[in-house]
């Protein structure tokens, strides 16, 4: 997958959804920044484009709010990386935000009507 391809097919992330996706990704266990980005892209079948640059301010923000915690550790291929873990409060936040997002998506879906071919 080349960066070129990403620019043509992928959809830029909606404002504010990155936080939700990060929290969701961390639900499966500690992960470092690059891993989070990769994981989001893979799970979305490369449809979503994560701007790696804006990932870090987002992580910083979530950490400041106490939703995630960070610690330096070693990655699978023996590299030093900063691993993020979901906190108890982050878990609660994830539940709340997920519910909200589902309701929003459902509402917008209803308005837009059935998908046209």
């Amino acid at each position: 997958m080349s960066p070129r391809r990403r620019e043509s097919d992928a959809v830029a992330l909606l404002q504010g959804t990155l936080d939700l996706l990060i929290l969701r990704t961390l639900l499966f266990g500690p992960q470092h920044g690059q891993g989070i980005a990769r994981s989001i892209e893979q799970q979305a079948d490369d449809t979503l484009l994560v701007d790696h640059g804006s990932l870090y301010p987002a992580l910083q923000r979530l950490e400041a709010r106490g939703w995630i915690e960070a610690e330096w550790g070693t990655s699978d291929n023996n590299r030093r990386a900063r691993f993020y873990t979901l906190t108890k409060r982050g878990r609660k936040q994830l539940v709340a935000e997920t519910r909200q997002w589902r309701r929003l998506a459902a509402a917008i879906g209803r308005i837009l009507g059935p998908e046209e071919a």
Binding site: H32, G33, Q34, G35, A37, R38, H52, Y56, Q60, S75, N77, R79, R80, A81, R82
Partner: peptide
């Protein structure tokens, strides 16, 4: 500390 994290990110991505 922050710069180091970014460097690690880029290295990991490059390795991939």
């Amino acid at each position: 500390d922050f710069s180091e994290e970014i460097q690690a990110h880029i290295a990991l991505e490059a390795e991939r």
